[in-house]
Amino acid sequence: MYIKINNNHIELIKSANPYLIFATIFVFIIGLYYSLFQSPPDYIQGDSMRIMYIHVPSAWFALMTYSILAGSCVLWFITRNPLFNVVARSIAQVGMVFTLMSLITGSIWGKPTWGVWWVWDARLTSMLILFFLYIAYIFLWQAISNKELASKISAALAIIGFINIPIIKFSVDWWNTLHQPASISKLSAPSIDISMLIPLFIMTIACFLFLVTVSLIRFRLVLIENKMLRTSN
């Protein structure tokens, strides 16, 4: 299980970088063409539905990135392989950007659809809390001057945050039933038309490619940072 990163791996990542950037841009352009011009407007929400094609992938990847982050922190504690910590640190900031984007695009979508910018719904609130968790993970690492210690501490915090997210979701659900009846009909999609699934699918692939590209760039960045700080993790 002990994987060691050597120079060959870094060379491989380096050589893959231009192709990845090119592929990301290419898929994003196709996705933009499909989502803005090629797909029909929704019959209830009209053209504001098109925001969903960027909102949904960024929300998915915000959650997926946090799962990878917490999972690699757990694996780091179990196996003591510094690679997992490097992965966690290189992926965290991308996740923060995706979380922020899903919050912003979600509230821009909410204004014409619900009539308000923000709803204290379980999903929205837990996304906001997720954003705080990303901030805590990233800035706690920067605030502690001893970097080996900082990695361990912030990894522990990431795992605690991962426990906290379901509790928040459950408690906000409880809170909504307690304080206010659900006045706004939630976005329920029993059957999505195939013409809407295609742009969503392409945009998801594009966001995934962006995630991979930037994570690999940050991976190299973190490795050089580690070499300069002369720490192993």
């Binding site: 933009l32 053209d47 504001s48 960027i54 984007m101």
Partner: peptide, 11 residues
């Protein structure tokens, strides 16, 4: 304004 601004901010 909603669609273009959200796409603009995102990219």
């Amino acid at each position: 304004i909603f669609v273009w601004s959200s796409y603009g901010i995102f990219f």
